[in-house]
Design a protein around this nucleic acid. Sequence first.
DNA 1: TCTCTATTGTAGCACTCGCTACATTCCTCT
DNA 2: AGAGGAATGTAGCGAGTGCTACAATAGAGA
Lengths: 187, 187
Amino acid sequence: MSPAPSRPEKLSRETLLPLMAAHVLEHGLGGASLRPLAKAAGTSDRMLVYHFGNKETLIVELLDHIAGVYSATLDMALGDIRPASRRECFDRVMDQAANPAMRPFMVLWWDIVAGAARNLPGYEVAAQKMIARQLDWLIRQMPVDDPDPEGGARLLLTLMEGSLMLGTVGHAKTARDGLLAGDLSPS
Amino acid sequence: MSPAPSRPEKLSRETLLPLMAAHVLEHGLGGASLRPLAKAAGTSDRMLVYHFGNKETLIVELLDHIAGVYSATLDMALGDIRPASRRECFDRVMDQAANPAMRPFMVLWWDIVAGAARNLPGYEVAAQKMIARQLDWLIRQMPVDDPDPEGGARLLLTLMEGSLMLGTVGHAKTARDGLLAGDLSPS
DNA sequence: TCTCTATTGTAGCACTCGCTACATTCCTCT
DNA sequence: AGAGGAATGTAGCGAGTGCTACAATAGAGA
């Protein structure tokens, strides 16, 4: 009721998660152990266990939070595209994927995919959310005259993710050449 | 100089690598620490450091070895396809990617991609080799009448990798629907 | 036989890991 | 003011980490 919040805000899950998410975005999930996470959040490992119960629960909630941060960052980083063709749409989205604001997510993303492949709890759910969010946005950016914007967006998404993966393992040119060898127009 | 084996150490490494590779294929790279690796190889952590110098060198050599094992496994698992169209080629390759013999590689693959994204030593090199090997094979499986088999193979590879990624994060249907919304024929 | 070097075993160091026991402080409600 | 729960600090446990010091063995060349 009374304002004057000069005191440090009470620590809770909601205040801790953004700080830990920032740490994970910079340092990855592989080395995300309690003590570094606590330091990044200005607490102790003792308090992280107190608030989240155990590390597994913490990571699950953290991944869910990161999925939310990803959505917000998408909105900030991505403008409207309104392309004339699927190919133009693809090119512009790939340009925006190179936005430095998205770079930490790009690196973290493969950690999440690897975790999902190993069925670690929380990873697949977070990945699903992030992909769904990306797909929603992509559908709205398809050419206005596209006869199948939903299908087309799914096609472009598949191509984008394949291209991004090939790019991170040093085969960006392979993906680029491949894109020139096909017709992306509606079937 | 003498006909006697000049490099006994090399023999040791190559004896140890397959055993450690099997362990990594089953348990992943994340938890690949010296003592479990040594146990899988029938030695001690002490000897792994003796033979490889340190863990980083060991992992680099192990990844390179795994890239070789991957090539051999591809030859065993993949038959000849000889499809009539790019779409048929894609479908059949995706079927073979579901081969249980390839499953451990599928899971390990995302570990390697994640490591490459973080510039861990050895990861990107191994990933490049594995992708290059896959692309070589794919080029030879393109329809005989394809006017641009190399470009087409690159296009299919990009689509395959995107589809496999979406599949591991629970969006297999997204990729499948996307494939139906586009024309894969040569541009 | 006698070195000499390559290989291997045994212990252990200094560190991080997730997690817990215990005590203390803080805040709110009565 | 006092009670009682929520929140937090301190200290540490047992296990695991990469790596090393030191000594013992083995096997080949002199």
